[in-house]
Write a protein that binds this DNA or RNA. Structure first.
Length: 490
RNA sequence: GGUCCCAUCGUCUAGUGGCCUAGGAUAUCGGCCUCUCACGCCGGAGACACGGGUUCGAACCCCGUUGGGACUACCA
């Protein structure tokens, strides 16, 4: 019995495959990203957008941005702006749109009329309260809380407080031939007559997406797998409309560390929050693309490599956990890879004293940033670390000052000031020679013995870039000044 | 509860019946480098959820169990 059913489904599946074999492969590929503007662009949405963007770019197709703003209560203009900003920051340009569903109401209405006229949809005047009661009653009776079809054959026309429902087949099954997950079968008996148009005349999600995807010529619907259960209903709507089906690809969800769907309580969710935390868009993109997709053992991808290699075939089926640590590693990687010149304007916004930063000449800034690149994981870290290069008087870390700015350093510092002051060629090489050959040998001190006190004098901290690079960048005057000031602490 | 999906190191993943005494990355631990902190380099530990099949042979195929997730609205 079960076998017969499976077999039936399989044959049906084969039939569907052959039905829509070619169009999608022959024609230009068109994908879309349809966020609903009820908040910022989050990590999960960004990855979905990225997959669609990459897929379109890989195939030389088109990527459409569509704003699904039919939820009038929750949609806001701020959200639209936030989403657009995030798309721009991630450098995912769209070829068409943004389309707004609220500006397409006449289109949906036209399709509704067609469906009602053909008998595939009908008006229903059941009130939400009544529906709720009936659902509760069904649950109590141990039945599925489905719409009971009360208005199906009442032949109601348009009117106030009336929704339009889709008439689903009573029997049979629909197969979703998912590009990522493979064939998935749904029995129609599990589905119910969903609302296509609300009583205020605005279409619901399931109807609007189908109409939009049909009219915009979408060939590949790549979205989160939280939509899998909606898909059979949507497929039925496509068929009722006489439209050909796109390819569906459902990408597994991104989970939080506790393995539940990623949400605010897991911390930063918004793409732009990562910008504010000093992340580079390249790092986020690279991290996101590897969440659920892979290309052998490769971890680091340029944008061009991503476009070249991206394929739905290599998207995994299982959900993945968001790991901030790996994102951080990638960010550090991209900070190291970037040129100091491109980093400079980005770092500026993370510096406490922007005026002091802006006052420094570009070459100085570049050299300073270069010394910070291998030791910064974020731009925030770099913005803080660059401070000692900019200030007039460094602030000493109390513990560091107490430990290293001691009276026994008086003589070494005096000699150092003397030697550095007399240097003809002020560069890293000569500086190191002063330290090593003169001070270390002459005074019998280990380099480490003198390095830390000098480091504290110059940076205020025991942790910093290499001593000689710092001295070189700071310049003779500033170095002498800081050394003398430190001696006041002895 | 019902429907659907998923299951390899802590995490992201490679793996599509023999190349697997399971590879890479991250995180972690140890060492090297060294003027500090990093970076970098070298090395260690660390996984096929479980039980049945199929097969000469299974991480890979089938069934079941367990575990996790999604959906179940006049939200999207």
């Amino acid at each position: 019995m079960e076998l017969c059913y499976r077999l039936g489904c399989f044959i049906f599946y084969l039939k569907q495959c052959s039905q829509r074999r070619s169009p999608a492969f022959m024609d230009k590929i068109i994908t879309r990203f349809p966020p609903s503007p009820t908040g910022y662009l989050h990590i999960g949405g960004a990855r979905t957008a990225l997959f669609n963007w990459l897929f379109a770019r890989h195939h030389g197709g088109k990527f459409i941005l569509r704003i699904e703003d039919t939820d009038r209560v929750r949609s806001t203009d701020e959200s639209i702006k936030a989403i657009l900003d995030a798309m721009e920051w991630l450098d995912m340009g769209w070829d068409e749109g943004p389309h707004y569903q609220m500006q397409r109401l006449d289109v949906y209405r036209e399709y509704i009329d067609r469906l009602v006229a053909s008998g595939r949809a009908y008006y229903c005047d059941c009130s939400p309260e009544d529906l709720e009661k009936r659902r509760a009653a069904a649950m109590a009776a141990g039945l599925k809380p489905k719409y009971d079809g009360r208005c199906r054959d009442r032949g109601l026309g348009p009117g106030p407080n009336r929704v339009v429902r889709f008439r689903l087949p009573d029997s049979g099954a629909t197969v979703l031939n998912d590009v990522i997950k493979g064939p998935i079968f749904f029995e129609h008996s599990e589905l119910d007559d969903l609302v296509l148009q609300r009583s205020d005349g605005i279409p619901t999600y399931n109807f609007a997406v189908v109409v939009d995807d049909v009219t915009m010529g979408i060939t590949h619907v790549i979205r989160g797998d939280d939509h899998v259960n909606n898909t059979p209903r949507q497929i039925l709507i496509y068929e009722a409309l006489g439209a050909s089906l796109p390819q569906f690809g459902h990408v597994p969800m991104i989970l939080g560390p506790d393995k539940t769907r990623l949400s605010k309580r897991h911390g930063a969710m918004s793409v732009m929050a990562y910008k504010d935390m000093g992340y580079l868009p390249e790092a986020l993109i690279n991290y996101l693309v590897r969440l659920g997709w892979s290309h052998g053992d490769q971890e680091i991808f340029t944008r061009a490599e991503l476009i070249e290699h991206f394929s739905l075939a290599n998207v995994g089926k299982s959900p993945s956990v968001f790991d901030p640590e790996k994102l951080l590693w990638l960010n550090a990687h991209y900070i190291k890879e970037s040129s100091p010149e491109t980093l400079a304007p980005l770092v500026e916004s993370f510096v406490e004293d922007r005026a002091a930063f802006a006052a420094k000449p570009a070459p100085f800034l570049s050299k300073a940033i270069e010394t910070l690149q291998p030791r910064s994981h974020t731009l925030v870290e770099m913005g803080a670390a660059i401070k000692f290069y900019l200030v007039e008087d460094v602030a000493y870390d109390p513990a560091a000052a107490k430990k290293f700015l001691t009276p026994e350093m008086r003589e070494p510092f005096r000699r150092l000031i003397e030697m550095i002051g007399g240097l003809e060629m002020f560069n890293e090489e000569n500086l190191e020679r002063v330290f090593r050959q003169v001070v270390v040998e002459e005074m019998g001190l280990k380099l480490g013995k003198i390095a830390q006190p000098v480091r504290v004098a110059l940076t205020g901290s025991t942790m910093s870039p290499g001593l000689f690079e710092i001295i070189d960048i700071l310049g003779k005057d500033a170095v002498l000044k800081r050394l003398r000031r430190a001696m006041e602490n002895f």
